[in-house]
Amino acid sequence: MRIPAKVDYAIRALAELAIAGEGPVKAEQLADAQDIPINFLRDIMRELRRVRIVRSHRGPEGGFVLGRPAAEISLADIFRAVDGPLAEVRDQSLSAMSYQGPATELPVVWMAVRASLRRVLETTTVADLANGSLPTTVADLAEEYRSTTEARWAGGEQFAD
Rank of each mutant, 00 (worst) to 15 (best):
V89R: 09
G67F: 05
V120H: 04
P60G: 14
F79N: 03
E28G: 11
Q100E: 15
R52I: 10
I36M: 06
W110K: 09
I3M: 15
E122K: 03
A76H: 02
V65D: 01
Q29D: 14
A71G: 09
F64N: 08
T125W: 01
N39D: 15
A127F: 01
V65K: 06
D77P: 01
P107D: 01
V138I: 02
L134S: 00
G101Q: 09
S93W: 09
E16V: 14
A81I: 05
G21A: 03
R42F: 07
S98P: 11
R146H: 10
I19G: 15
I38Q: 12
L121Q: 06
E143L: 07
I3V: 09
T136M: 11
I19N: 15
D140Q: 08
Q100C: 12
V113I: 15
A70M: 00
A103E: 14
E157P: 03
L86R: 00
N39M: 13
N131H: 08
E105H: 12
W110P: 08
V109E: 14
A27E: 07
P37T: 02
A71R: 15
A87E: 11
I11W: 11
N39W: 12
L17Y: 02
M1V: 13
R55Y: 13
E150T: 11
V138R: 06
Q29C: 09
W110H: 10
V120N: 04
H57W: 08
D128S: 02
G84M: 06
Y99H: 01
S147N: 05
E88D: 12
A151L: 04
A160K: 01
R90S: 12
P4C: 08
Y145Q: 11
S147P: 06
D83Q: 14
E157G: 04
L141M: 08
K26V: 08
A31K: 07
V65P: 09
E28F: 09
W110T: 13
D140V: 14
G155K: 05
E16I: 13
G132C: 00
M45P: 02
H57M: 10
A154R: 10
S98M: 14
L106E: 14
G84F: 03
I11G: 09
Y145M: 07
G67D: 06
L17W: 00
E47I: 08
R119T: 09
G21S: 06
R42M: 11
G63A: 05
A103R: 15
Q29I: 13
A115E: 12
D43K: 15
L129Y: 04
V120P: 03
S98V: 14
I11Q: 13
L141F: 04
Q34R: 13
I73H: 03
M1D: 12
M97R: 02
L94H: 04
